[in-house]
Simulated assay, not measured.
Amino acid sequence: MKRIMTLMCMVMVASITLLGCSNTDDTKKNEDSKQETTKKNEIKADSKATYGFKDVVDADGLRIEFTKAELLEAEGKKDSILKLSFELSNPTADKKGFTAINLEVKNKEGELLDVYPGENYGKEIETGTTDKGAGYFMVKGSAPFKVTYIDPDHKEVTATWELALQK
């Protein structure tokens, strides 16, 4: 009886040890996989390329990712405002400014949308930080929308995204 108990204890200790080791390896693999995914999604801005949702575009050190495009109601007029949500990060050693006013938005027909006067994002992103925000535009025409970021320092197109509406 004593041998059976000792044997059972040894089996339990071995099982716990093996489970502990495998969880550490699995966690490490998951972390490595997440890092690879993040690196794959980061793209150096190319003014001739077109990006989409979840593409993290490095625009001269400022990383921009559009996360959602949706139509909002305003003053009783359905679908009159386009809300573009984005995430920003600054891995550089300098502050980086970003404002939704530096976004040029065109509809499917190529018409330029006016900036909606409201709570449009505009801030300096501190070194090593991330932030979320939104820009608002008056809708005319139909989706998809081409969103172009114009570098405020050089007054030139840095990156363009083509964004469909999401619900």
Rank of each mutant, 00 (worst) to 15 (best):
T92S: 13
E126Q: 09
G97K: 03
F66V: 02
L71K: 15
R63P: 00
E111T: 15
K95E: 05
D79R: 09
I101H: 02
E119Q: 12
L71Q: 10
K54A: 06
N41I: 00
E36V: 14
Y51D: 01
L71N: 07
D79W: 06
T37V: 09
F86A: 02
N41M: 06
T67P: 00
L84Q: 09
A100I: 03
G122E: 07
D114A: 14
A93M: 04
K108S: 15
L72P: 04
E73C: 01
G122K: 05
L112C: 00
G76N: 09
I43H: 10
P91R: 03
F53E: 00
S33C: 07
D55S: 11
E73L: 01
I81K: 08
K40H: 07
S85L: 07
K44E: 05
E126H: 06
E109P: 10
D60N: 11
S47V: 11
D114Q: 11
K83N: 13
S80K: 08
L71P: 01
K96T: 02
D55Y: 02
E124Y: 12
N120F: 11
F98A: 00
N41C: 00
P91I: 04
I64H: 07
S33F: 14
I101C: 00
T38L: 14
I101R: 03
I125P: 04
D58N: 13
F53P: 00
I64F: 09
N107L: 05
Y116F: 15
L113K: 08
P117E: 10
T127D: 04
I125T: 09
A69I: 01
E70T: 15
E73A: 02
F86N: 00
T92I: 01
S47L: 05
D55K: 01
D58C: 03
K68R: 14
K96P: 01
V57L: 07
K123I: 10
E75K: 11
K96Q: 15
D46V: 15
D94H: 02
D114C: 01
Y51T: 03
V56I: 15
E111H: 06
I43A: 00
N107S: 14
S33L: 15
E87Q: 08
G118C: 09
N102D: 15
A49S: 12
E70L: 13
T50P: 08
D58L: 03
S89T: 12
A100Y: 03
D60K: 15
T38D: 01
K54W: 09
G97I: 02
F86L: 12
K106M: 03
E109A: 15
K40A: 10
L82C: 07
Y116E: 06
D32V: 09
N30C: 08
N90C: 05
P117A: 10
F53N: 00
I64E: 04
D32C: 04
E70C: 05
G61E: 05
L62I: 14
V105K: 03
K108H: 09
L84K: 06
G122T: 08
T38E: 11
A93Q: 02
P117I: 13
E65N: 10
F53M: 00
L88K: 05
K108E: 11
E104V: 15
